[in-house]
Design a protein around this nucleic acid. Structure first.
Lengths: 223, 223
DNA sequence: GTCTATAGTCGGATAGAC
DNA sequence: GTCTATCCGACTATAGAC
């Protein structure tokens, strides 16, 4: 399967992949039918077996696209953090609590932006379905985006707690911290209702960023 | 549909419901077939349309059972909290921060126990699928268990932050707090791997209870 | 490379014997 | 109330014209 044929197909593959993210996300693998997928993409039903070898092939390809998309969207922010951590390693001196808090807050605010973005809405269903019953698709998303992010955040949480990042306590905090942000996407319906929000617009986005700062602050204050 | 017929059926309905929780949880509504469901329950395929009017009817009935199960399992702990809150209302004096923290910790530890329990494993897939694409089934679970719990926890978080429980800030914290616990069920695979845990046994359960106490503590310390 | 037509499979629900 | 047999529709994938 050396490479996806691109000649002549005026974006059939791309249209299919784009549509697949939201259709699979909304209905899951079984709930989505090839007819839904191709209709949403505006292409012939036969395009799926032809280009992807079948529905499952399209599913895997979609997962890869999502992984790449996530990595891309948080990439710039992640690079900043990596740079700070790398510099600390070079100097052989740990990152200061103040800097860790600043960097972590900034990164997680970006993450929060991405999480509640319209783009992520299409990703979310896909990812969280996979999280419950991981298939190969999840592996790919994890490797591309989630794994590196977890490790990075964990190091900063370790600094804030003045504890070994490898310790259980730090890792537990990291997991809870990230899930405390993701909840606004994953349980969006529940969250909106509970907050009396109708949607997540600029004002709500701003409130979320403040909330993220709150969460980070609460880590450094606890012992 | 006055009442489910129970005469003579030696537990067919019960067997079907019990099996349905895990089968729907694992495969989702579309992924689960009536043949899977009835085979897992050890009953005739025809039993689903007969007793529940169809696959969807079984799905709704399953949701109700889960809602009742959750309410039951956290019921005792919830009652304690309700009592404390009610007493405060009577006296007209707010709950003290110390008591709020104690009560909240105890409640959330129970919640954490339930969340990671084997029983909840069967519920989890069902609930989180619903959370992403809520149907009527979600409404029922929400009303039975999640809604009341959110309100209760929120009041205590309000006390700890010395803020109006209705305020956005408090509600945001409540959502993040609860999701910080649920993550160990919802993203269990990711969490276990990140923590180098093989399973959640007694030791891990204990660690989680300590972690929950940590999370509550971090609320009272933050401003 | 893209289409129409259709084959082949499996899904949920029904009919009717017992 | 429970079974076997079966229908009908929807699904994915293939065949073959263009």
């Amino acid at each position: 399967m050396e490479q996806l044929k691109n000649d002549r197909g005026d974006g059939t593959i791309e249209k299919l992949l784009t549509a697949a993210i939201s259709v699979f996300g909304q209905h899951g693998f079984h709930g989505a039918t090839t007819r839904m997928l191709t209709k949403a993409a505006g292409v012939n039903q036969q395009a799926i077996p032809y280009y992807f070898g079948g529905k499952e092939g399209l599913y895997i390809a979609t997962a890869e696209l999502i992984g790449a998309g996530m990595a891309d969207r948080i990439g710039a922010a992640a690079k900043k953090v990596t740079r700070v951590l790398a510099r600390a390693d070079e100097v052989g001196e740990p990152v200061s609590a103040g800097e860790a808090r600043r960097v972590l807050t900034e990164f997680l605010q970006t993450f929060s932006d991405v999480v509640v973005s319209d783009e992520a809405e299409a990703w979310a269903g896909f990812i969280f379905r996979e999280q419950m019953a991981p298939t190969e698709a999840f592996e790919r998303i994890h490797r591309a985006a989630m794994g590196p992010m977890l490790g990075m955040v964990n190091r900063l949480v370790g600094v804030l707690l003045s504890k070994d990042p490898a310790s259980e306590r730090v890792r537990l905090r990291t997991l809870s911290l990230i899930s405390g942000i993701i909840v606004f996407r994953m349980s969006r319906a529940t969250a909106l209702r509970f907050l009396n929000w109708e949607a997540i617009g600029p004002r709500e986005n701003h409130a979320l960023r403040a909330h993220v700062a709150d969460l980070v602050k609460s880590i450094s204050h606890a012992t």
